[in-house]
């Protein structure tokens, strides 16, 4: 039983990172109905920027988180302006945007490789002190607490932003119906740009958290795994649904860990895609997805 709970703790800390990444994925989809395949590259850039901040410049963790948020947020604005906005202006379909997002990902990864090299990097030891807390036979590390705490704070902040602020309401309005929102005076392009800022900032911080959770794994190519897992998470939770993406991410994280414990690690990646398959067969709209009514 202890082992089960211990693995649950591991699964939740892994899943929370998947979730944070998937939230950014799903938000862009919800607003623009495009799958932004540059999102995994943003995750890698976030982790690498944080590496420079933590290792080379030696700044503290809170400042590193804040700077990474800002840096990848700005990168999101650049991405939108360079890769997506020109297509929107020409009324290109979602498929064209998908292709430019692949192109943007390739460019970002190659640039990152130029700047940081291809070798895996690690944050300086002691970025988060090695400390353990025992709760009824369970060992929880400070690292796991910090990661879970950061994800919870960010997700709650996102929730408040979406429900309580004008910009959040504008994003939801655009997601509901872009044409009507524009007619009602919502500045469409600015709202979309802000969405990219927001999602990229979250993706960048997810990269930082991955870098801390798996020390020594920071490289320009680290986003690949998360791209697939994140995609599975948002389909699992229902495309465009933030709570669904959270739950999807957590389910995949916990599922992977449990498979390693009780079956074999060879089946690890089968979880995400097995779950995905099941959901698509049984409930094609995803766990929390609703049938979209505005398709007519």
């Amino acid at each position: 039983m202890t082992v089960f709970l211990q693995q649950l703790v591991n699964g939740i800390s892994l899943g929370s990172v998947y979730a944070l990444f998937a939230v950014g994925f799903t938000l862009v989809f919800g607003v623009l109905e495009i799958i932004n395949l540059a999102h995994p590259a943003v995750l890698a850039v976030g982790a690498l920027v944080a590496y420079t901040l933590l290792s080379t410049l030696g700044v503290g963790l809170p400042l590193a988180v804040a700077s990474t948020l800002l840096a990848t947020g700005l990168l999101g604005l650049v991405l939108d302006a360079a890769a997506f906005r020109p297509l929107r202006a020409r009324r290109a379909g979602p498929l064209a945007s998908l292709i430019t997002s692949i192109g943007a990902a390739l460019i970002l990864v190659s640039l990152a490789q130029r700047v940081w090299g291809a070798e895996p990097l690690g944050y300086p030891p002691g970025t988060i002190p090695l400390r353990f807390f025992s709760v009824g036979g369970l060992t929880i590390s400070l690292l796991q607490i910090v990661i879970l705490g950061t994800v919870i704070v960010l997700v709650v902040a996102l929730r408040l932003l979406m429900t309580r602020t004008r910009v959040g309401i504008a994003i939801r309005a655009v997601a509901e119906n872009p044409a009507t929102a524009s007619l009602l005076g919502v500045p469409f392009n600015r709202v979309v740009a802000f969405t990219f800022f927001l999602t990229s900032a979250l993706g960048g911080v997810a990269g930082l958290l991955v870098g801390m959770l798996f020390q020594g794994s920071v490289s320009p190519f680290m986003g690949d795994t998360y791209g697939l897992k994140g995609l599975a998470a948002i389909i699992l939770g229902g495309m465009g649904d933030i709570t669904g993406a959270m739950l999807g991410g957590l389910a995949i994280g916990v599922g992977e860990v449990m498979i390693v414990q009780y079956l074999s690690s060879s089946y690890r990646d089968a979880v995400a895609f097995g779950l995905l398959f099941l959901v698509l067969v049984i409930r094609p709209t995803g766990l929390l997805g609703r049938q979209r009514s505005r398709e007519a």
Binding site: Q7, G11, S13, F214, M222, E256, V257, M258
Partner: peptide, 19 residues
């Protein structure tokens, strides 16, 4: 316990080993 080249997360395997 096995893992695969390219994996980044070994927490599940290590927890199982410690158990």
């Amino acid at each position: 316990i096995t893992f695969a080249r390219g994996d980044s997360d070994f927490s599940a395997q290590l927890t199982r080993a410690r158990a």
